[in-house]
Design a protein around this nucleic acid. Structure first.
Lengths: 151, 151
DNA sequence: TGGAGATTGTTTCCTTGTAAACAAATTTTT
DNA sequence: AAAAATTTGTTTACAAGGAAACAATCTCCA
């Protein structure tokens, strides 16, 4: 009797269940989904927050550098920055030594806003991976850091 | 002299560099980007492949179950399945015991195609994480499995 | 039994992100 | 110094994926 599976627990993933790329995609989707359950829509989205956070800590950073570090494509970065500019959160300035580039800085109002937002953002981030032990979580973070080449 | 950063290595991520969600997003983007460099456009995309692979191993699986396991939303699943159907790779059948549902099966031609595609797919998957040691890679895979709740 | 409510898939509209072509500025080559 | 190639950001056109509303079916319970 060859019953088709009816519940997601019974699904046979075969080799897919050890494929690193596949697992990473699943993990990322899970995190993202939970983010919107917990944090809701009221706030900045994770992408926007990380852009602003990095500008806060690297005032005058150039769009291209920001994009490289956060893996955001140039075309998309243009839109992100413009949206932030429209909200009065960042200012764009073309530097004298390279007039193709654009340097980004937070407005004073934005700097405050980010520092506030960082509270719930990192509260959420700290809650990610609660089904792991403290050690496992630390291991995972370390391995991911090495994997993506940070530090 | 407060020089703005000029290279992505110099970017100060502050607490972001240990935030699990952030690292996971970066890792996933890195994998995805490399996928297209190495595998090119000629083949199935990772999402399509995983759907077909799971159908191969779970014939007659229902769209909803497939979506739950692969974390694909219903609306998107509908489009994915229709695209595969248009390519003659899957067939849809409404089962008698629940006429809302749709059961998916591979066509014989598709089954062959997937078995071939699995060669390059898993070759790529095996190459992911080559900057880690064998042990680290294994650890990472295990932690991710636990994190996403597989096994 | 007969609603009330839940589930399943679909459609429509919208958001997010990418690819490709482009213009302007800079760097490299010759 | 002039020409060629590269970098940076922008625009435009498109693809991937999600939210909400909907119709059909099924389940539960009064």
């Amino acid at each position: 009797m060859d019953m088709p599976v009816r519940t997601s627990e019974d699904v046979d993933l075969d080799r897919l269940s050890t494929a690193l790329g596949f697992l990473m995609r699943l993990a990322q989707l899970k995190i993202y989904e939970r983010f919107f359950e917990e944090v809701g829509e009221h706030h900045l989205k994770p992408g926007e927050f990380s852009v602003l956070w990095v500008i806060l800590h690297n005032p005058g950073i150039r769009q291209s550098v920001l994009g490289q570090r956060l893996m955001i494509k140039r075309a998309h970065m243009t839109k992100l920055i413009r949206a932030l500019e429209d909200q009065g959160l960042v200012t764009r300035q073309v530097p004298d030594d390279d007039r193709r580039a654009v340097e980004i800085t937070l407005t004073p109002a934005a700097a405050d806003k980010i520092r506030q937002a960082s509270h719930w953002f990192f509260t959420y981030e700290d809650s990610v991976g609660e089904n792991l032990t403290r050690d496992e979580r630390q291991q995972l973070t370390g391995l991911l850091r090495k994997f993506v080449g940070i530090d």
